[in-house]
Simulated assay, not measured.
Amino acid sequence: MHNTASLLLLVFLSITFIQSGYDKIFYWKENVSWLKEHFAKTQLKNQVPLALAHVLVLELVSGILCIAGSIELYLTNGKLYGYYGALFSCITLLMLLFGQRLAKDYDGARTIVIYFVPAVIAVYWLN
């Protein structure tokens, strides 16, 4: 297999976003409550449930595309689904980064960058 590193990155992104989506679905009230407090001093203070729903959809789309991309890459060496999974992962992470910066949570923003770097590498390798 010539695409081992790309496959590992797609699995990494799949785990990241599917687990995060699972957490949002099954602990919705707790997430909304925590995020309302987190964004209390921002323009998003009244939009938390809607913003969380948008992020949830993007995370699930990213994770599902990365899973499909992993399978496609492993079975046929195809890169289409993986590329779009990595691209959606980057878009999702940029939205999360924007929220953290808006909330002035610079440590949280820094943590997102740790996930963003491998996502960008995956986009590059799968393009």
Results as ranks from 00 to 15, higher is better:
Thr4His: 12
Gly85Ile: 00
Tyr115Thr: 01
Phe17Val: 07
Phe98Met: 10
Trp125Asn: 11
Pro49His: 10
His54Asp: 06
Leu97Ile: 01
Asn3Glu: 14
Ser20Lys: 07
Leu52Tyr: 13
Thr76Lys: 10
Ile71Gly: 01
Val117Arg: 05
Phe116Tyr: 09
Asn46Tyr: 11
Val117Asn: 01
Glu59Ile: 01
Gly85Val: 00
Ala103Pro: 08
Leu96Arg: 06
Cys66Asp: 03
Tyr84Gly: 08
Leu73Glu: 03
Leu94Pro: 01
Ile112Lys: 15
Tyr83Lys: 07
Ser33Val: 15
His38Gln: 11
Leu56Phe: 14
Ile25His: 14
Leu56Gln: 10
Ala122Lys: 03
Pro118Asn: 06
Val55Asn: 08
Ser20Gln: 13
Cys66Lys: 02
Leu94Glu: 10
Tyr124His: 11
Leu97His: 09
Ala68Gly: 09
Met95Thr: 14
Tyr106Glu: 05
Leu65Asp: 06
Pro118Asp: 07
Leu58Gln: 09
Gly99Asp: 04
Leu94Asn: 06
Leu35Ile: 03
Met1Trp: 06
Leu52His: 13
Leu13Tyr: 10
Ser70Gln: 04
His2Gly: 14
Phe88Gly: 04
Leu56Asp: 12
Tyr106Phe: 15
Ile64Cys: 06
Tyr84Val: 00
Pro49Phe: 09
Asn3Cys: 02
Ile64Lys: 01
Leu96Met: 12
Leu52Phe: 10
Leu93Glu: 06
Glu72Leu: 02
Leu93Tyr: 11
Ala119Glu: 08
Ala53Ile: 12
Val11Arg: 04
Gly78Leu: 09
Cys66Glu: 02
Tyr106Thr: 07
Leu8Lys: 05
Val11Pro: 04
Phe88Val: 00
Val113His: 01
Tyr124Thr: 06
Cys66Arg: 02
Val61Lys: 12
Gln47Trp: 13
Ile121Leu: 04
Gly21Lys: 01
Lys29Asn: 11
Pro118Ser: 06
Phe12Tyr: 13
Leu13Asn: 08
Phe39Gly: 08
Val55Pro: 00
Glu37Thr: 14
Gly85Pro: 08
Gly108Trp: 07
Ala119Trp: 09
Lys41Tyr: 06
Leu60His: 09
Ser20Met: 06
Tyr81Gln: 06
Phe116Ile: 11
Ile67Tyr: 02
Ile18Leu: 15
Ile114Phe: 00
Tyr84Ile: 00
Ile121Asn: 00
Phe88Ser: 10
Glu37Ala: 11
Val55Leu: 11
Pro49Lys: 04
Ser14Leu: 09
Ile121Met: 01
Pro49Cys: 12
His38Val: 03
Tyr74Leu: 13
Thr42Tyr: 08
Val117Ala: 05
Lys45Ala: 11
Lys79Glu: 09
Ile15Glu: 02
Leu58Ala: 14
Gly99Cys: 11
Tyr27Ile: 02
Phe116Met: 12
Gly78Glu: 10
Phe39Ile: 05
Thr111Asn: 14
Val61Trp: 09
Ile18His: 09
Thr16Ala: 13
Lys29Tyr: 04
Thr16Tyr: 13
Tyr83Gln: 04
Leu9Tyr: 07
Ile121Pro: 00
Asn127Trp: 15
Asn46Phe: 07
Tyr115His: 04
Ser33Arg: 08
Leu80Trp: 05
Leu96Glu: 00
Val11Leu: 15
Leu80His: 00
His54Ala: 07
Asn31Glu: 10
Val113Glu: 02
Ile25Gln: 12
Ser6Arg: 06
Leu96Tyr: 11
Leu97Val: 01
Gly69Cys: 03
Gly108Val: 04
Trp28Pro: 12
Asn77Ser: 15
Gly82Asn: 11
Leu50Ala: 14
Leu126Tyr: 10
